[in-house]
Design a protein around this nucleic acid. Structure first.
Lengths: 346, 346
DNA sequence: CTGTTAGCGCATTCAA
DNA sequence: TTGAATGCGCTAACAG
């Protein structure tokens, strides 16, 4: 069992002090190029890699980012196997961006609804001492968590949180996205476009509804409350909303759903009534998780840039920890809009 | 910015030495119950949680497990958004099981094909000093990696590796699974059942082919090489294999594909030729990633117990690190088989 | 520009 | 059964 090589070995090999090696490792200033090269050569030769634990012990940085997701929601998604790829996209964006800076992202689950939230978060932070924390919905808007973080002086990013406040707000423009989605349907000639909202627990639900309304108003069409169905992101709530629509005297000919599950519910209800999509009902979805690409027909959808948001969160936190003071309080990441057969008559 | 509470604070609060606190934390022996309680009370009161970094520095354990996945394959999966949930299932099984023991699982990507594999793995280990490493295909069968691990004296688990050798081999019985899948089709009356193999890079590809052959032989049917298409787990390879099948004088009426992508390819090719599934062609898939549940029709599939395998890997590694000598060299995790419409005429 | 000193928070010897 | 000393590998603050 080979003992691992430490900074001491490198120092000996290069014939310099530990400190100089440390400076080279951290790209510190005040090192003669010649010495720097000698040290780098020794590092290379010995295959030295600093121990994260020791770096954290000695210095002020841990090179760790902590990503917090909602426990129930995440586990439920994993177990159901319904293909929600939020976590994957977060890893894609967050891990890879972190790695660029020599950081690592550790993923943890905490229960937002528990009275223990603070304890859970506190415990994770005490154990890991991360340099920054990435919050995802619904944690992003949980004051218990954000206040704790502020109090601890830990930089954090709130993904998907439009609310002002401490921490970097990383959002996509949900209102604009909903407007684009709705306008797309209006452009196709639809006069009665329905909208299914998400859970009120998520601030973005309101933003999406706003965008829908704006698109309708912009065309000079009336805002009909009957065309707004209340959902909670669940398939069942989508079914209920759709059935309410079809019970109307004049049902919508197109619908925007605030997430994929509810959009699939719309598809299901339409099919159940013998209504063809997109001819009888056009559907636009939000989020663009994998399943909507494999439904029949595949659904037109607003693409939530989860990977890009996570990457930006990581970047901001790392720069903040590095002392960069010139950082924006928030960032809006562009969304994509993918047209598929659910709104297009091929 | 509140300074974090350390073992020192707890010791002061409880009126004992640092050492005693450490003993209580680690469930060490030789502590009077009365003192133990006093310490626990102090821990509770102060909300003390040991620092992972410090634990690793002082002691011999890091409470970290390192999970290694193939970089290209994983990133490709994430980017394509095709809903492969291998990573999710690994996290589900590995993270949650690790957490039960106070461990954390860190997920990293390394490139198996690179000449740098050893350096990459070495670097991750040097930085993290994990107590154990979880290898996933194709790393599980990469001798460069396994030898390095052996040499470092690090416990590791090989998920999906049937080969004998060092490290815990965590597998599902691929041969039996393929046999079950094939037999299922034979039971439905199919006489000509095709099989699409996976990449030779994966040992399990051979095992699945064996199972297929065994099922055919068991029925006294001839082994027809034309009915074995060579794939590499990609959609395209599935398409090629299927087209070769349909070019035969007597094409198969059912097919077992070694993964979901190739099974979907089979479905696509059949549809393209106006062949109905399951009437004109029955399809069984391997892996059961989410997309096959949403295809039309949904596919019958062998369910790969990824979460259970990761959980078992974590459990074994943690127990090994704890000094348990009575551990099996490998474990076979039961697979599931889910029948859906692609093999059933409703 | 470079080296020296002093911890970081804990577990592992030892000694009591 | 408990406590005191020592060191893990590194960086920060200070000297030189």
């Amino acid at each position: 069992m080979r003992r691992s090589v430490t900074i001491k070995h490198v120092a000996a090999e290069a014939g310099v002090s530990l400190q100089t090696v440390s400076r080279v490792i951290n790209n510190g200033p005040n090192v003669r190029p010649e010495v720097r090269e000698r040290v780098n050569a020794a590092v290379e030769k010995l295959g030295y890699v600093p121990s994260l634990a020791a770096q954290r012990m000695g210095g002020s940085r841990s090179y760790l980012l902590l990503a917090l997701n909602d426990r129930d929601r995440t586990i439920e998604g994993w177990k159901s196997g319904e293909g929600t790829d939020w976590v994957d996209q977060m890893l894609l964006g967050g891990m890879l961006k972190s790695a660029e800076f020599g950081y690592r992202m550790i993923f943890e689950l905490v229960d937002t609804h528990s009275s223990q939230v603070e304890r859970e978060v506190q415990a994770a932070i005490s154990a890991l001492h991360p340099d920054g924390v990435i919050l995802t919905p619904p944690h992003s808007d949980n004051p218990l968590i954000t206040q704790l973080l502020v109090q601890m002086g830990l930089p954090f990013a709130r993904i998907g949180s439009v609310a002002a406040g401490p921490g970097f707000a990383i959002v996509m423009d949900d209102r604009a996205a909903a407007e684009v989605a709705t306008t797309h349907l209006l452009d196709l000639g639809h006069q009665r476009v329905g909208f299914i909202t998400g859970s009120d627990e998520y601030v973005l639900s309101g933003a999406r509804l706003d965008g829908y309304r704006r698109a309708i108003s912009n065309r000079g069409l009336p805002l009909d409350d009957d065309l707004v169905g209340r959902g909670d992101f669940s398939f069942e709530s989508g079914v209920r909303a759709m059935e309410a629509f079809f019970a109307l005297e004049s049902p919508p000919t197109a619908v925007v759903a605030s997430n994929d599950q509810m959009a699939l519910a719309a598809l299901r209800v339409a099919n159940g009534r013998g209504i063809q999509v997109p001819d009888g009902l056009a559907i636009v979805s939000f989020d663009d998780t994998p399943i909507v690409r494999f439904s029949n027909p595949p659904l037109t959808a607003v693409v939530q840039p989860v990977a890009a948001m996570a990457a930006e969160a990581a970047r901001l936190l790392i720069r903040a920890k590095a002392g960069d003071k010139d950082l924006p309080p928030g960032v809006t990441i562009p969304f994509d809009f993918t047209v598929r057969r659910s709104t297009r008559a091929d």
